[in-house]
Design a binder for these strands. Sequence first.
RNA 1: GCCGGAGUGGCGAAAUGGCAGACGCACGGGACUUAAAAUCCCGGGUCCGAAAGGGCGUGAGGGUUCGAAUCCCUCCUCCGGCACCA
Length: 817
Amino acid sequence: MAEPYDPQQIEPRWQEFWARERFAAADTAGEKGLYMLMMFPYPSGDLHVGHGRNYILGDCLFRMFLMQGRKVLNPMGWDAFGLPAENAAIRRNIHPREWTIGNIGRMKDQFRRWGILYDWGKEITSCEPEYYRWNQWLFNRMLEKGLAYRGKSPVNWCPSCRTVLANEQVVSGECERCGTLVEQRDLEQWFLRITAYADRLLEGLDRLPDWPEKVKVMQRNWIGRSEGCDLRFRVEGVEEPLTVFTTRVDTIYGATFVALAPEHPLVERFRSTAPDADFGEFVDGLRNQTRLQRESEGGEKEGRFTGAWAVNPFSGERIPIWVANFVLMEYGSGAIMSVPAHDERDFAFATRYGLPIRVVIAGPGMGEGTVLSEAYSGPGRVVSSGPFNGLASQEAIPRMGAFAQEKGFGTGRVRYRLRDWLISRQRYWGTPIPVVYCKNDGIVPVPDDQLPVVLPTDIEFGKVEGNPLARSASFVATTCPKCQGAARRETDTMDTFVDSSWYYARFINPHVHDAMLDEGRVRRWMPVHLYIGGVEHAILHLMYARFVYKVLADFGLVPGDEPFSVLFNQGMIVGKSSVTGRLEKMSKSKGNVVAPDALIARYGADTERVYTLFMGPPEKEAEWTDEGVLGAHRFLQRVWALQDAVADAAGRAGEGSANERLRIATHRSVKRVHTDLERYHPNTAIAAMMELVNAIGETQQEAGEGALREAYETLLKLLHPFAPHVTEELWRLTGHEGSLLRAGWPTFDAALLARQRVTLAVQVNGKLRATVEVEPGLDPDAAAAAAREAAAKWLEGKEVVKVVHVPDRMVSLVVKG
RNA sequence: GCCGGAGUGGCGAAAUGGCAGACGCACGGGACUUAAAAUCCCGGGUCCGAAAGGGCGUGAGGGUUCGAAUCCCUCCUCCGGCACCA
């Protein structure tokens, strides 16, 4: 009898062995291999079982690749800048760096205890100057190309995080990180010109067939490309024309007013002349509202007449200019031509304020005089539009656009919802933006040879409002690189998404000191073949990374122009919350965190791994249950116990049919595990191995040593990526030396699988009536004969008019009478 | 509102045009045990039937097909994303 299965005793030993033997080390100087990567984590400290999913799946695939003898780069690092470290500094008076490094140590240890292998020789920590200096270097390059710029605009301010945020980091009016309502502030900030890459970001998605459709759709929506034209309206009494953006020039004869955003510069000119006494108050009220407030007020459309008139450039008609709460300064030109008949919002506004509604697009069943009860925004025939009458709206759009262009009051224009990427943050724990402000020379970049601009350490946290960096005298006071005069350093730091926008390329050459990237290596190893991470980064990280990669490609530093060939999004692990009683993402506040430590102490890391991979398809959300863990543990117990079955069969030839049955089961499992892993379905791969365990159990009395050994050893190999510790141990116990990682990945004998008898389903008129066991590869006539015999009782007195034969699967008989 | 995804036993799920429910959990019965735990064996979609066998069954309704969980149309519900974007 074997010793009892004791993961406590087994697991640490193998973890040490794998580290010592450096199985995960990949030489990127040599020839190209497969590059797989899991999104590097923020080192927040403790990991729970929900975090494990991503890493366990990655490790499972990695180990299979290693067993297949492939060369694989599988690195790990730390997205180490960010607010939690600074908040910890304020609360607990510990330096952010110290806090971060401590957490990294704990997380690395957790990875080790999960049995997860990484090439730690290539570890990256983004808060170290040797890493972030290249953020600064890249910033300088982008500054040279005009891709980085300083600009003033209304920006999102999170009062709790005390910093501005990029648009992508505001989720329905709230800070993505802390949930606080963001405010609008007019500030001068640093931006990266991601909008210059909008079309390429869009077009690149079409060349990513192995990305989830969902992510691509989200990015497309976020970029929000729309084609239309800018039209210039003359405003009575005003010199400069007013530009509006529209995608529906075809409706312009139906424009009965023009609407301006409250922030539109033209509004100021009408402040004193507008007819309503509360005009100024109204405008100021809107300007002080947050975006969310403005939208939340029941979607109620509100506005005021400015007292001014615009002239429709097509018809020459005078139409009033209004200020309206539903017009956004951030989009288009902050001014629209309003066509109530054909736009839902304009319709609501016109109805409320008694403005005319004029049909100019006749949809099905509509004519010139039709009175609408709601806006019609579909296509139709152009009416009441002078020379354009009778055109189909689809046709009128280009025709009328061209007309406007010809006459000089219109220009074809593509607009995007996407805004430039605001990267300045008024916080300490990030990459210093490498510029200085000089009285003589203005904004001066810090020259490359003076990089990195290192974060100072003489910092006091938490005492006063504002960026602690700005209070570091030694940091702020500097000299101008141009004139050597006194100058002031920029104290804003970069958004941490800058760090993660290119780290994947640095992993290939983390120790190059005189360049951001080693061109030769990067050229061989990029793009990342398989990128695994959570869907929460569908827009943020993944779009920034695609943008920066394209910039790097334009600088000639990287090959191609997409960084990640295959993207795999794992789903969340959720647990029943003791607070809300519902299934929620694991978090301390929800009281549903399962810590790996106790689990590993009781059942072992292999059990956690098998359960995590067995829960369901990894792209789906899955609920953690203690009973499920038990099932995974039982499975490993059975595998452990089966070593006796092999030992007991020593010297036994066994019974032929049992041997054959077991061998077929073995090879079928090899085939299934392999194909299931290839399509990222570890759950069904485990099911296949469970079936093999059952098959070994059923035949262990009759089968011979050869078949049992083959079955068991194959099982150990197949199971190794899932449960690495116990399989290594069993591999030794069954008399082998070395590691399963070097034992090769099993292949299956197709000829053997082709020999197994098959069960044909027999259908009569589409209903299953019988099954019949036959030799594989039966020809249609023989199959039909077997089917007729099996279903004889259903064919009595009937005529078979058609036979459908699906080889080795079924025969369908169609009968009449 | 728009876009995307999903809906299958008591539960997690499998099957992507060919025997629905593999595999596991929970449950029921049995063996072992003084007993329990652990382990092992057997049984579970549902209805009729003692059984053999049959009817029904993959959110609802319709369609295509010899054959549909799978393809098409209409609708319902849930989840996710975007949302006054001109």
